[in-house]
Nucleic acid binder design. Sequence first.
DNA 1: TGCCTGTCGATTGGATCCAATCTAACAATC
DNA 2: GATTGTTAGATTGGATCCAATCGACAGGCA
Lengths: 227, 227
Amino acid sequence: MSGLLDVIQSAGTRYRTATEFVEATLREAILSGAIAPGTPLRQEELATSFKVSRMPIREALRQLEAQALVDFEPHRGAVVVQITLLDAMDNYAIRAALEPQALRLSIPNLTAEDFEIAEDLIAEIDHEQDPGRMGELNRRFHMTLYAQAGLPRLIALTEQHLASADRYLRFHLAAVGGDMGQDEHREMLAACRIGDVERAVATLARHHGRASEAMQAFFRARDVSRD
Amino acid sequence: MSGLLDVIQSAGTRYRTATEFVEATLREAILSGAIAPGTPLRQEELATSFKVSRMPIREALRQLEAQALVDFEPHRGAVVVQITLLDAMDNYAIRAALEPQALRLSIPNLTAEDFEIAEDLIAEIDHEQDPGRMGELNRRFHMTLYAQAGLPRLIALTEQHLASADRYLRFHLAAVGGDMGQDEHREMLAACRIGDVERAVATLARHHGRASEAMQAFFRARDVSRD
DNA sequence: TGCCTGTCGATTGGATCCAATCTAACAATC
DNA sequence: GATTGTTAGATTGGATCCAATCGACAGGCA
């Protein structure tokens, strides 16, 4: 371990084990696209660049496998899972199931502070140019509205799949022409404020449906196979 | 490895690595309740009983951690996650979100063969006494109706959480007095046969709602803390 | 030419070993 | 008697080592 934990600990978030650090870093890299889909993840290579042995790498890869971020083939190693239209649709379908549920349960518990945070995030998204940060702000806006659902596993699962959506962000933005759906964000927030669960959920469904259709048309138009 | 893989390969399902075998076996044991919630999973102990070294054990435990079946605490090891009312409600909420989505997408693709299989499973459940097998049959019935959704991740995630529900099966059966909700099963299947998506989904929602409420009342009545 | 086969390097799966940390029991102090 | 410090054993995290498997390529054969 030696020098690694020092670096880790000086970097803000504290990780208690090398495995945790490797897992979090790799996940972030995969979700952001820093490591391209299809890239083979050589254990020895990762070990030297993380300055640890292969063991924490392997444990981290197993966790990422369970999160469906890498494919494992015995004696052939791990590969970053591809992005296909099917995967994108799959992700949308899962989010379209989980997010309304989370929202429905959360709305009754949302506070004035939550509304303020959500309001600020909408404003930030308006002024943001960088696609990567836009994705993060979008994620935080949605999670703010879901966070009071009171069921930790539901919230974690929702966040995980919302984060996975970042992998499709480039395509998403291209598909919808840079429109993050701010109108729907505002309408959702307004509905949450007055406790109108049905309208909030319906707006969210429209949000998902519109994005999903745009993405589908986009992929169909320029064929998936590349990238 | 030596003697282990022989045993594995003669046991029906073939596992390609010891890690896979350990992971599947432990998950099964946790879900069925063979390993009680709260049990610490000592790596050395598991290693000797599986007749492998600690390494495949560790990788398997990491995967189970990502599936929220064990809790990991640095330098303290893995523990089978507890069963609480909150967890049960969490699981219901997730299933209540995922399963209608899977069903909705699957119904248009269901074939006559699927209906036959589902029909047979309903009959089998009628005549089954053993709670463990009843849980499995119930799971297979539901999955049969979801299996044609066409989205692999959605299906896998649904199955995973349906399987997790087995952990609450004992409580579930006690709560509903042994009634697996066969009336609703029959109504769902009938609706699927005639392609009535809305009625099928509504019946499923009733199925979930009834089970969830019974479980909640049951836990409340006899307090969660024990078991 | 085209196909099969065997060998070699690369890479992973698993075993063993060492270091770091936690738990628990016990001693010392107030 | 309760609390705190200390130390030994148990247990995990990580490193290193060895064995098994895969892919590519070269050579033999029809």
